[in-house]
Design a protein around this nucleic acid. Structure first.
Length: 324
DNA sequence: GTCTAAATTCCATGTTTGGT
DNA sequence: ACCAAACATGGAATTTAGAC
């Protein structure tokens, strides 16, 4: 219901009306003509007139109510005030004044329609520009795999510890992003990546995310923490960068959850110099671990946003050594 | 047809996150 | 601090299409 309404509003408010027929035929006072754009519509079969605020400056609620009443005299139906943003204070006052209003994609207050949802619609997140963790895990797996570039869902599911339906979604996602192509043979489905891994790395690059979901600091090492170093500890092993004082390990979210419950590690503030840094990953770092460290691709992604020049140089150095 | 394996859809669940 | 949306993924049921 809420979703339906939301979609509806987005559709209605997304319309661009070139000629404002309603107000032209009404010879509205100039101050109304100048301040608003009017648009007719219906909501749940009730005629509505959207009174869309044009000015940057937000009017006071009392003024808005006057305007709305003025309009209501010339229109049989609901008059709805529309503004891109309304301050919290004015929103309260509008509700007190019983002025219907819409903040596109965020808020809706329509008492006369029996809708008193002061539902604040969350900003619609922009088009997904990052792959889901499972999709990224597949890409990393392919980048590290020198023997193959075409896979079936089942084998990837087994290898990476996901279900086959997770792989169904992964296939769709990677195809949609233009990173890979999928095909079918009978009921089997396959996904095929560029043979040139370098090319794959480049096309996938902008869709890949920092694998680190969260960083925590603990007082001691635990046998349950996988022996997979990450962060600067890992980078120092793969470049000329000197080793940092503090060890950094990577762990999957799932593993961290059980360790936290079972092993009673103490979490410390990041300042403690003898703390161990744990990176909690979106996918399982152990799957791709090489020689007790995380894979270079994930490592690169975890540090590429650093603005420390030495780190950037070390990353470059590491990438140059990769045998594609 | 019926059986079966693989994939997919629908729904459920635990977690994270953004906005008051 | 709280709440609901969004996210990530899995379980069960359902569909698909090859094999007999």
């Amino acid at each position: 219901m809420i979703h339906k309404t939301k979609r509806y509003l987005v559709d209605v408010l997304g319309l661009n009306i070139d000629v404002d027929l309603w107000s032209e035929n009404r010879r509205l006072p100039v101050y109304l003509q100048d301040s608003y754009k009017f648009q007719q519509t219906t909501l749940h079969n009730l005629p509505c007139l959207l009174m869309i605020a044009l000015g940057e400056q937000e009017q006071t609620p009392a003024v808005i109510r006057k305007h709305a009443e003025n309009i209501r005299d010339r229109w049989e139906g609901e008059v709805i005030y529309v503004r891109r943003n309304i301050t919290a204070y004015n929103r309260h006052r509008l509700i007190q004044h019983k002025v219907s209003f819409i903040v596109p994609e965020k808020q809706l207050y329509l008492p006369l329609l029996g809708i008193d949802l002061r539902e604040h619609f969350r900003r619609i997140r922009s088009e997904r520009e990052q792959l889901s963790p499972s999709s990224q895990a597949v890409v990393i797996n392919v980048l590290l795999d020198h023997n193959n570039h075409k896979y079936a869902p089942r084998e990837l599911a087994d290898k990476l510890g996901y279900s086959t339906m997770a792989l169904t979604r992964v296939f769709d996602e990677l195809e949609f992003a233009g990173i890979a192509t999928t095909s079918r043979q009978g009921r089997k489905r396959f996904i095929e990546f560029p043979v040139d891994k370098r090319h794959l790395w480049e096309t996938a690059g902008k869709f890949l995310r920092d694998p680190v979901k969260k960083r925590v600091y603990v007082n001691r090492m635990s046998s349950q923490i996988p022996n997979v170093v990450a962060g600067l500890t890992a980078l120092s092993r793969m470049s000329m960068l000197s080793a940092p004082d503090r060890m950094t390990y990577a762990i999957s979210g799932k593993a961290w959850k059980t360790i936290k419950e079972e092993d009673g590690l103490k979490q410390l503030p990041p300042i403690e110099s003898d703390a161990i840094e744990l990176e909690i990953w979106h996918y399982n770092p152990v799957t791709f671990a090489i020689n007790g460290g995380v894979d270079p691709f994930s490592l690169y992604l975890s540090l590429r946003d650093s603005n420390d020049e030495r780190i950037q140089i070390a990353l470059e150095e590491m990438m140059e050594k990769i045998k594609w």
